[in-house]
Design a protein around this nucleic acid. Structure first.
Lengths: 249, 249
DNA sequence: CCGTGCCGTGACAGTCTCGTGAAGACTTGG
DNA sequence: CCAAGTCTTCACGAGACTGTCACGGCACGG
């Protein structure tokens, strides 16, 4: 399986506003006419648009790492429906998702948001409002996939999220997928304590329900690979009662 | 329960999987009846609610660093209106903001989002939908890594509640969970005296029954770590007969 | 000046958290 | 289908943290 979409998602310090590159928006919508009009509206707002007619195609796009900055999903899709699509994307990515649909029932709104969507807009929508909501969401998420992430250095550790490579003292070391995601999450917030819940949500997916201790075990295995002396870690530190953090500096 | 969601997860009696905890939501709304109903709805969803009737009061709350995790703003306010309030908050904070109003005009939606709001919900709203949108937004806000966290400075003390970090004179110091919560509570109300009862309620939980002296002991432990000279504290001060306060600036 | 009550201090046992090893479930590739 | 690698769960023990207590000092009012 390809690497997690978010490996490229957390960029370094952002220069907001000045978007040198147009944000790329994936539109998942089966009705060709609607799709065309949405494309026009979005391109008018200055976005780059990619389209798929089905949820399956959308997921395939994620598989081959054609990562959008934001996803618009129609609820009524042939095959896998919008809710399913949303959940499936959430399993591999934290990309901002807006559900666009004709169904105005509150129950659907709630279901959509619970499925992992960030916003829910009902048709017929006004282009300007959709544009504003997209801007608001991008502003909040600051998602800049595809943009090469700078390498993160912590002590003698050196990791390249984009390439999926970790080195210690110049020597490349092998981490499993989960270990790598875990390390990336910690490294994205150096010095900051992350709770088990936060790590579970970000590494395993927001809808994961299971043992908290799972985190401990992976932390331990990560330590055996990353720490010179796993018993006295000086990178991956435990903060009792709170969680874990990566030693800053 | 007062502070961050993260703390509650491990502390309580094996409560995992439950959607953890009380985020603090600030409701800015002048109509008392609406405010009461919103409070009820939110508390039903398990949030802690603080209220202000005007934008000015809301900003004052930010001034004294009573920081909420999310803000609900009504558009029609006496004095400074909702848009203004939103912009003013954005100047000092990246806290998630939802604008709640009766005005459904698209133009208002766009203006609200452009003013820095994350979402815009029109009255009459369904409680369940509002709840879902709040959850979605909190989820998104938490998921954004690398965000500079809001810091509270008191003298040479510097604490970042979200990051779980405390520094004195730039030097990071280790506090236990309870000590940290206690300090956060005091720091959220600098210069203000907090009684033992208040501290017990906010740090240990409203349903805690035990010795008041418990607070004393933890204050002492906190002092040994936070004060240069624990015998003559100049941060954490005792107010005889009343409680404790954190020396302001 | 003294007594009362409030607060600081040190110690201690119970509780909770975390690290650890191991075993079973699951996934992937051949 | 098997085999290797990986993920998840579980139980146990050491250690950290918490809550309680007793004692003594100090401020305040009489």
């Amino acid at each position: 399986m390809t690497l997690d979409a978010r490996w490229g998602a957390d960029g370094g310090p952002q220069s907001d506003k000045t978007e040198t590159v147009a944000s790329r928006i994936l539109v998942v919508e089966d009705d060709e006419r609607v799709r065309a009009s949405v494309r026009l509206a979005l391109e008018d707002e200055g976005y780059e648009v990619i389209e798929t007619a089905t949820a399956e195609e959308a997921l395939a796009a994620f598989e081959r790492r054609a990562l959008p900055h934001l996803v618009l999903i129609d609820l009524m899709l042939p095959g896998m429906d919008g809710f399913e699509c949303c959940r499936a994307i959430r399993r591999v990515s934290t990309v901002p998702i807006i559900i666009v649909t004709a169904r105005t029932d509150t129950h659907d709104v709630v279901a959509g948001l619970e499925a992992g969507a960030d916003d829910y807009v009902t048709k017929p929508f006004v282009a300007k409002e959709l544009g504003a909501r997209i801007r608001a969401l991008l502003r909040r998420a600051r998602a800049v996939p595809g943009q090469p992430t700078q390498a993160i250095n912590v002590g003698d550790l050196e990791l390249e999220p984009e390439a999926g490579v970790v080195r210690r003292g110049g020597q490349e070391i092998h981490l499993t997928r989960t270990e790598f995601l875990l390390l990336c999450e910690l490294a994205s917030n150096p010095g900051r304590v992350l709770s088990r819940e936060q790590l579970l949500e970000r590494v395993w997916g927001y809808d994961y329900f299971g043992d908290n201790r799972l985190v401990d075990v992976h932390i331990r295995r990560l330590r055996t690979k990353v720490e010179p002396d796993p018993t006295n870690p000086n990178h991956v530190l435990t903060v009792r009662g709170l969680g874990y953090k990566l030693q800053a500096g």
